[in-house]
Design a protein around this nucleic acid. Structure first.
Length: 482
DNA sequence: CGCATTTGACCCGCGC
DNA sequence: GCGCGGGTCAAATGCG
């Protein structure tokens, strides 16, 4: 189904023309949450519709069974009649349970509707705030651009003191999105329960051929849904194994990500004269998160940082940004492995963009966030002002484009690609498919956009803001410059 | 002296 | 089975 995008000029003002608003992120959040909420509602309606259909089928089966059972009572074979009676009782119990599940589904749907209503109300508040800010802030645009100094994670969230109310609304929006995700999880569990019911129906004694066929037909449609739900669970578990690699130009030994790290090893990697440093998170004992830092062999100014694992402790807001990024990016990555009709996108875009992909030998799926190619003034701390406004747009198109590797590589190329796609119907369809792919990622983590922006900002930030990180030798200072 | 870093040793998986 | 390479461990070392 085609996604419904809000054509509100305000919401879309960020896309290319208003870097300030784009940088602030709110319209992006609105856009993506709009689409996100739409998809959630769509899925919920779909599930509800199917369950009603299936329930009707089961009811029909029950009627048939009752009729057959009545015929059986008139039979002279008493054993067969008793067996049929048992079957009927079991079947009635299952149908009753199915009715209960349907009622539960209705309840969940009402919750989703409620969340959507709250979301819409908050969205309107944010739009009003943005309008107000836009009207009063036109004279400040230049000044704000000048304010676009690199922000580390430490800066995120405190740099917009004059927009505290807007930020509060954003937080509310994200909370609402989290609620939706939680509801989706409930629905997922709900679907599994339905699958159990279907198994019971399927494995029960044969009572009536017709009733069995009807019931199985009903159950079959459930079982067709179940693999998708199970696949989502598998995706979640795989996310923990996925890695996110960030390529960024930096003179410092490490990028500032808000976490505390302790170096536990250093190795010379094959094919790279620069050593690879290994760090583990020390914000909590037993935190499994680790990262590797290594300079790129081809370009020593590029710092490769690879994150692995998920934190098992509360994170400061600044670190939360990167954590959300890695988590959601992993979700995005794994959503790309799900069967869909996007193969054409993968192929065509990879061909036209010549994007780097991972080697198949990678132990874990890895996403690469390449922030180096659109930083013409890498030594200039303001270089991200060009990069950032385009990011969320490309983020939305990114998930399935790269299959096993998400690469935010050349922002201008991607933006151009998007534009060219919009010129043809086929391309529009492809883009729509890509948006569908992005839904999975957004579902996994609705904070992704803001987190990504924060991450990029952090990566591009000045080294002096890396107060929390161990600013020691990450190996690059021992790098062989030959 | 306590903590973080360094660095060689060790472990493990993979390919041949 | 062996070698290689990536990743981790832990004793030694350095630093504040």
């Amino acid at each position: 189904m085609e996604p419904t995008w809000n054509n509100d000029a305000i919401l879309h003002s960020h896309s290319t023309s208003d870097p300030v608003m784009s940088f602030r992120g709110t319209p992006l959040v609105l856009d993506e949450l709009d689409f996100f909420a739409h998809k959630i509602k769509e899925s919920e309606d779909d599930l509800d519709h199917h369950q009603s259909v299936e329930l009707n089928n089961v009811d029909t089966s029950l009627d048939l069974l009752t009729k057959n059972n009545s015929a059986g009572n008139r039979s002279t074979e008493e054993d067969a009649t008793l067996e049929t009676m048992d079957d009927k009782n079991e079947f009635v119990a299952l149908v009753t349970e199915l009715h209960q599940m349907n009622a539960e589904n209705q309840r969940l749907r009402e919750l989703v509707d409620q969340v959507n209503n709250n979301y819409n109300a908050l969205r309107m508040q944010v739009i009003k705030l943005k309008q107000k800010q836009h009207n009063h802030g036109n004279n400040r645009v230049i000044g704000e651009k000048e304010d676009m100094v690199p922000r580390s994670f430490l800066d995120i969230g405190v740099a917009e003191k004059d927009e505290s109310s807007q930020q509060s609304s954003e937080e509310k929006l994200r909370d609402q999105s989290k609620s939706i995700v939680e509801l989706m999880d409930q629905c997922k569990g709900h679907g599994k329960d339905i699958a159990v019911l279907e198994d019971k129906l399927d494995s029960g004694k044969e009572s009536s051929t017709k009733a069995r066929m009807e019931g199985r037909q009903a159950g079959q449609e459930f079982s067709n849904k179940v693999p998708k739900l199970d696949q989502a669970s598998e995706t979640i578990s795989m996310i923990k194994k996925a890695r996110v690699s960030v390529r960024a130009r930096s003179d410092s030994s490490m990028i500032a990500d808000g976490c505390q790290w302790r170096k536990y090893g250093q190795k010379m990697a094959k094919g790279n004269p620069c050593p690879r440093a290994y760090y583990r998170c020390t914000m909590s004992s037993g935190c499994p998160v680790r990262k590797q830092v290594q300079r790129c062999a081809e370009d020593r100014s590029v710092l490769m940082t690879t994150y692995e694992g998920q934190h098992n402790h509360p994170l400061p807001p600044t670190a939360q940004a990167m954590a959300s990024t890695t988590s959601a990016a992993a979700s995005m990555l794994l959503s790309g492995s799900m069967p869909s009709s996007d193969g054409l996108i993968n192929q065509s875009i990879l061909e036209t963009q010549n994007m780097p992909t991972l080697s198949a030998s990678a132990p874990f799926p890895t996403i690469t966030l390449d922030l180096t190619q659109n930083a013409p003034n890498s030594s200039n701390s303001n270089s991200h002002t060009l990069l950032t406004p385009l990011l969320p747009h490309n983020f939305i198109s990114a998930p399935k484009i790269f299959g096993q590797a998400l690469t935010l590589c050349d922002q201008t190329k991607l933006a151009g690609l998007h534009d060219s796609h919009s010129n043809s119907q086929d391309a529009t369809s492809l883009f729509a498919n890509t948006l569908n792919a992005a839904t999975a990622a957004i579902t996994a983590d609705p904070n992704f956009t803001a987190a990504l922006v924060a991450a990029i900002t952090s990566v591009m930030g000045s080294p002096r803001s890396s107060t929390n990180a161990t600013n020691n030798s990450s190996g690059d200072e021992h790098c062989n410059n030959n």
